[in-house]
Design a protein around this nucleic acid. Structure first.
Lengths: 146, 146
DNA sequence: TTATAACTCTATTAGTTCAATAGGGATTAA
DNA sequence: TTAATCCCTATTGAACTAATAGAGTTATAA
């Protein structure tokens, strides 16, 4: 399971991607997404440090998207906050670590099984950009109205 | 990521499935799979309680597979030890819990994205039975020799 | 220039989970 | 009756999670 921090980050980003040019106050995002304000504060700061968000201090300031919604995908967000996407470390790429149980990865079918799952998951997470998520949301909401 | 407990369980089961009729000592599995003996003890007990393994006490005793290798899949093992397979609780089936951030699941694309990932993951985990894993292992080992 | 709005940063807390171990108890075979 | 083996409860220390506290910094605008 994702940490709450990661889930909060995703929801905050999607919220901001609905108005990609807008500048947002921590307080407003916090209320719109039901995220504890102080906790969100730390999250947005992390996202700023990693270059996804920009910010302006002082009165009239706020956070804004620095990257284009099409260029931010969930795989990166998950990795930033929760590390490896794979279910076992020996099947991870960016956070790879060998495991003691399967001595020979080449013939370890447990490794193999989880590698397949990792690959499929990463592929799907990469396809989920802020842009695609917001677009789909618009569609779903329109369909529901009808 | 899976807990070590879960990963240990999977490796122990695969080990036993290589000789589905055999009776195994905790000590032997522990050494074969590099799993701390006392920890493994608790794991095997859990697997016995859930009906996957059987055991015989006393001298000459040991653990053995109660279910057929083809009938034990990784989805069940993961659920037994780590709970939900989904990355967010609102996308889980057996461990479903609503989340505060997406108020309307029907139109929440975050929910939608993680539901797709969950479905694909479950499908793959279900296809990974002890039997299929051992069969594949045999193939991989034969191919490597050549 | 000063009040205020807003982000920045470090530290701390309580609670939980994880991984592993300890130390017997119960059961069976020889 | 003894040794082998599984059974069971409890405990530990470390790490992580979620959330909060509180003071610091920066920018705006009256």
């Amino acid at each position: 399971m994702l940490s709450k921090k990661c889930k909060y980050a995703i929801h905050a980003l999607v919220h901001m991607a609905r108005d990609p040019e807008e500048k947002f106050l921590i307080k407003d995002i916090s209320e719109a997404c039901n995220i504890p304000k102080k906790f969100l504060e730390a999250i947005l700061l992390d996202l700023k440090r990693s270059g996804v968000l920009g910010s302006k201090q002082g009165k009239g300031g706020g956070y804004f998207l620095r990257m284009k919604p099409a260029d931010v995908n969930l795989a990166e967000v998950v990795r930033q906050f929760d590390g490896a996407i794979a279910l076992v470390s020996c099947a991870a790429h960016k956070f790879y670590e060998p495991c003691a149980e399967c001595e020979d990865e080449e013939t370890c079918t447990v490794h193999d099984a989880f590698l397949q799952i990792r690959n499929a998951t990463v592929e799907m997470l990469k396809a989920d950009t802020l842009e695609s998520l917001v677009k789909k949301e618009t569609k779903l909401k329109a369909r529901k109205k009808r």
